[in-house]
């Protein structure tokens, strides 16, 4: 919309310019909303983990004998005896400079730990989501177009069954079924081979099972949303127009039905992408995948409050950012949203 064709009439130029300013206003508005949500998440993250009962210092020193002096020293270092407003101020200022606090259990900066673990999760979730979206949408479109056909019934049934299966169970089942064909834990082999290609293949080999497990469980929702939103478009009159023009059936589907049915699916894809990051706890725990999910799992066992708080803020933040991206993309896909 932003590049205007040369020699266009002035009226059209004016329209384009208006569209340009309204796009800027739209993006600014949505970004502002997302920022407000982030601030809310920040406050919530602080309060939530202050309300959990239990003395963090007692947790940390659970397994070793500690003198009262040592305990007091630890308390002072962690700042748990400070007034709440003071703690919040430290937390908020730290967050702004990228400091998420220090882990009780590992005694390392939380931000660094999350940073290390973020990329494996993004790799796992990203691969699984991209595949799930492609597979789910393809199946959903086929199923809706031939509603109540054998294809529709079989695939809807299979997808729903897999959707209801617990992830850890499916993961273990796959491990047994493949009989050691794929590694059962970790992201890299201990004896890491030389060379970029070999290393990439090694990661891919480790990725296979967790990725397939995640894919099998999550593709159902994309398929069902695509199926139902396409079914909703099937009765539309513009499809009759397209058929009357003499278009082949698959062109009617591809050019006219799918672009309209895609709109609700896009929202879900992005929203879920944010959520799936947190939903990988089980899969990562089963396959010892060194990602955020496994980190959350470890933090929960502590409980390691600064770590949990950091993970919470990062995950909630990613949902908000993804949602913002979905709304921006929606505007590209649907001209009616551009006008509103």
């Amino acid at each position: 919309m932003t590049t205007s064709t040369t020699g266009g009439p002035p009226a059209a130029d004016l329209d384009e310019r208006r569209a340009g300013t309204s796009t800027a206003r739209f993006v600014a508005g949505k970004a502002g909303g997302a920022l407000a949500s982030l601030v809310f998440v920040m406050v919530l993250g602080f309060l939530l983990f202050r309300m959990i009962p239990g003395d963090p210092v007692a947790t940390m020193t659970r397994d070793r004998p500690t003198s009262p002096e040592q305990l007091a020293q630890l308390r002072e270092r962690l700042g748990v005896d400070e007034p709440l407003w003071r703690q919040f101020l430290d937390y908020a200022l730290g967050l702004l400079s990228g400091d998420l606090g220090t882990s009780y259990l590992y005694n390392r900066p939380v931000a660094t730990m999350i940073g290390e673990r973020l990329w494996p999760t993004v790799l796992l979730v990203g691969t699984a989501t991209v595949l799930a979206v492609a597979l789910g949408m393809w199946l959903g479109i086929r199923a809706a177009w031939k509603r109540d056909s054998a294809f529709d019934r079989v695939h809807t049934g299979v997808a729903l069954t897999l959707w209801s299966v617990p992830q850890f169970w499916l993961g273990l089942l796959l491990l047994i079924a493949t009989q050691g064909l794929f590694p059962s834990r970790g992201m890299r082999s201990p004896d890491l081979p030389e060379g970029f290609l070999a290393q990439t293949l090694d990661v891919a080999w480790h990725l296979t099972l967790p990725c397939v497990t995640l894919l099998a469980v999550i593709y159902a929702q994309y398929m069902l949303v695509m199926r139902s939103s396409l079914l909703e478009e099937m009765g539309s009159e513009y499809l009759t127009t397209a058929r009357a023009k003499g278009l082949r059936d698959d062109l009617v589907r591809r050019r006219h039905a799918v672009p309209n049915a895609l709109l609700p699916a896009v929202t879900l894809v992005f929203l879920q992408f944010g959520m799936v990051v947190s939903g990988t706890v089980t899969v990562e725990a089963v396959f010892s995948w060194p990602g955020l999910g496994l980190l959350t799992y470890d933090a929960l066992r502590g409980p390691d409050l600064p770590l949990l708080q950091g993970v919470f803020v990062v995950l909630a933040g990613s949902v908000i950012v993804m949602n913002l991206l979905a709304e921006l993309l929606y505007r590209v896909l649907d001209p009616r949203v551009r006008a509103a």
């Binding site: 009159e237 513009y238 009759t240 127009t241 023009k245 003499g246 672009p259 309209n260 649907d334």
Partner: peptide, 25 residues
Amino acid sequence: RLRAVRWSSASVVFQGAMHALNPVR
């Protein structure tokens, strides 16, 4: 043959004010 006849021999004007045009094209 039917696809060739559609629109080139006979075309339809639906109640276009409502929903006969594809909203995203």
